[in-house]
C-alpha cells in the first residue's frame, strides 16, 4: 500500500489531490490532479514534474490535458519502473506530495496548412493536446497513432475528434494498418500529400525513424525529447541533449526540437545510464508492494 512517511520541511503547502484515476489500457493510466494554478498557466507541449512522497524520485510527465474551471491537470503515464508503478497504485482521493509546472517551452502552434501528428505508444497522450491545438489554429490535422497491439492503443476516439484524418497502426496487425507508424507516414508522403510540418512523439527509436522518413522530403519535423530530468528548470543540466552539435537543456530549451538535428544516439545512451539502479528499485518496490501489477 501507499504510505506517506512524515514530510520534511514541507511548508504551508497543500498537496495535490487526485480527483480521477482511469486505467486506459494494460499498464497505462490516466490521472486528473488538482493543481489550479498549473492548469491556468498550462499550454500544449508543457509538462509537470511530480514527486509521490518524501522518498520518491521526481519524474516528468506531459500535461495531456488541463481544465481551468475544475483546476485540474491530466497526466497519462505508462508503468516503466519503480516510480510509475508506484504511481499506478494510487487512486482518486490519494495525494501527490509535489507537482510542479507547467515546465518547458510551449509548442509553437501556428496556422501552417497541413500538420501530421505521429504518436507512438504512450506518446499518443502528449500528442493529443497538440493535435487539438493545431486543429483549433486552423490546420488540416492528419494523425497517425500506433501501438504494439490493439489492446495497447490509447485515445483513439479523442484523437479522431480533433483530426481531419486518423490512421491507426499496430505492430501485430490486430487493428488498422499492420506495421509501424513510419510505414504509414512514408506512404502518405509518397502519395504526394502536401505536408507543412510533422510532429512526432513517442519512444526515441520511433522519433529517430520518423526523422529519417521526413528528411528526404525536406519536411520540418519536430520531436519531443524525454531525457532524464530532476528539477526541470535548467538548474542541473542532467537533461542535456545535443541539437545541431550544440548542448541544450531539454527542460527549458525544449522539450521540442528539430528532429533532423537531434543526436538520438546520445539521447538513448543517456536514458540507459541508471539501468542497474532501476532494477534494484523495482525489486524493492515489488517486495514492499507484494508484486507489481
Amino acid at each position: 500500500m501507499h504510505h506517506n512517511p512524515q514530510s520534511s520541511a514541507k511548508c504551508d503547502q497543500m498537496s495535490y489531490r487526485i480527483i480521477e484515476k482511469r486505467d486506459m489500457v494494460h499498464q497505462v493510466h490516466l490521472m486528473k490532479v488538482l493543481a489550479p494554478d498549473v492548469a491556468r498557466a498550462a499550454k500544449p507541449g508543457q509538462f509537470v514534474i511530480i514527486r509521490i512522497d518524501e522518498q520518491s524520485e521526481r519524474i516528468p510527465l506531459t500535461i495531456a490535458d488541463y481544465n481551468v474551471t475544475e483546476g485540474s491537470v491530466t497526466i497519462i503515464f505508462q508503468q516503466m519502473g519503480k516510480t510509475t508503478r508506484q504511481l499506478a497504485t494510487l487512486n482518486a482521493q490519494d495525494e501527490l506530495q509535489d507537482l510542479v509546472g507547467p515546465l518547458g517551452t510551449p509548442s509553437e502552434i501556428e496556422e501552417l496548412g497541413t500538420v501530421v501528428l505521429v504518436g507512438g505508444g504512450v506518446g499518443v497522450a502528449p500528442a493529443y493536446p497538440q493535435a487539438k491545438a493545431y486543429k483549433e489554429a486552423g490546420n488540416k490535422v492528419i494523425t497517425i497513432i500506433g501501438a504494439r497491439s490493439e489492446n495497447l492503443l490509447i485515445l483513439e476516439e479523442e484523437m479522431r475528434a480533433v483530426s481531419d484524418e486518423l490512421i491507426v497502426c499496430t505492430d501485430d496487425g490486430t487493428k488498422g494498418h499492420h506495421g509501424f507508424v513510419t510505414d504509414v507516414l512514408q506512404k502518405l508522403l509518397e502519395s504526394g500529400e502536401h505536408v507543412d510540418r510533422v510532429v512526432a512523439i513517442g519512444p526515441p527509436i520511433m522519433m529517430r525513424a520518423v526523422a529519417g522518413v521526413t528528411k528526404p522530403f525536406g519536411i520540418q519535423t519536430i520531436v519531443s525529447l524525454n531525457p532524464i530530468m530532476i528539477d526541470g528548470t535548467g538548474m542541473c543540466g542532467g537533461c542535456r541533449v545535443s541539437v545541431d552539435g550544440k548542448t541544450k537543456f531539454a527542460c527549458v530549451d525544449g522539450p521540442e526540437f528539430d528532429a533532423h538535428k537531434v543526436d538520438f544516439d546520445l539521447l538513448m545512451s543517456r536514458l540507459a545510464v541508471y539501468r542497474d539502479e532501476e532494477g534494484i528499485s523495482i525489486k524493492k518496490h515489488e517486495c514492499t508492494c507484494g508484486g507489481g501489477q
Binding site: 521526481r58 519503480k82 530532476i230 528539477d231 542541473c236 543517456r270 528499485s281
Partner: peptide
C-alpha cells in the same frame, strides 16, 4: 555529454536534495 559526466549541481542535487546517498531507501539513483 558522455555518461558519467555530471555538473556539480546535478551531482549535489541528487545527493543532497534527493538523498541519493541513501539509495535505494530513497529512489533517486
Amino acid at each position: 555529454n558522455l555518461n558519467g559526466v555530471y555538473s556539480a549541481n546535478e551531482f549535489l542535487t541528487r545527493v543532497n536534495l534527493m538523498k541519493a546517498f541513501r539509495f535505494p531507501e530513497y529512489d533517486t539513483p
